[in-house]
């Protein structure tokens, strides 16, 4: 059952927090706004009935990625963040915002007017069917390990590769030639 109120609440706050994150002056403030935005997104996911995704959002994004961001910000130091909040210059800023706004309007228009935006195709995973099969988590997990097993393993490989890459990039110079 969709809770419209939950959706509007989390959605609105999500928008606000992401605006603060995107245009904020203080780097740490930006980071924490982004954390809050991720929490709100998780709420939206939950309101849409994607419980596993919501929880993963909190674990992965708000919990791991943002921690990483905050670490790096701390390492580099706010003092050295020259021009942290400054923009490119008034003309480019204005043009960028205007263009983004225009694109947004267009997108909404498209969605509202098309069948994609308004129709509902019926699939096998309606809310009742999912509830009957043991809940969203169970159903999605079963799918991930059966039908989507290959992408799952590939993503695993990607994660390993990223880890290696990050470590390689950060090894101090004098040690790199030896390893």
């Amino acid at each position: 059952m969709m809770n419209a109120a939950a959706f509007f609440l989390f959605g609105g706050f999500g928008l606000a927090f992401s605006a603060m994150a995107a245009f904020g002056r203080n780097m740490v403030g930006c980071a924490f706004s982004l954390v809050m935005a991720f929490f709100c997104f998780a709420g939206v996911y939950a309101a849409l009935g994607a419980h596993l995704v919501a929880v993963l959002q909190i674990f992965v994004y708000a919990g791991a990625v943002m921690v990483l961001f905050v670490f790096v910000i701390m390492i580099i130091g706010s003092r050295r963040m020259t021009g942290a909040g400054a923009g490119q210059g008034r003309f480019v800023t204005g043009a960028g915002v205007l263009a983004a706004g225009a694109a947004l309007v267009l997108l909404i228009k498209v969605f509202r007017g098309s069948a994609v935006g308004t129709g509902r195709v019926s699939g096998p995973f309606t809310a009742d069917a999912v509830a009957a099969a043991g809940g969203n988590t169970r159903v999605l997990s079963e799918l991930l390990f059966s039908e989507y097993a290959l992408p799952f393993e590939l993503v695993t490989a990607v994660l390993v590769a990223a880890a290696v890459c990050a470590v390689t990039l950060l090894i101090p110079k004098r040690e790199r030639s030896g390893s």
Binding site: Q88, V92, G96, A99, A102, L106, K109, V110, G113, S114
Partner: peptide
């Protein structure tokens, strides 16, 4: 990089605008 990104946005805008004209 950002100038290029801005250019891409303009391009996407134009494309979507054209499509919307056909649809909307």
């Amino acid at each position: 990089l950002q100038a290029y990104a801005l250019a891409m946005l303009f391009g996407a805008l134009a494309l979507i605008g054209y499509l919307v004209h056909g649809l909307g």
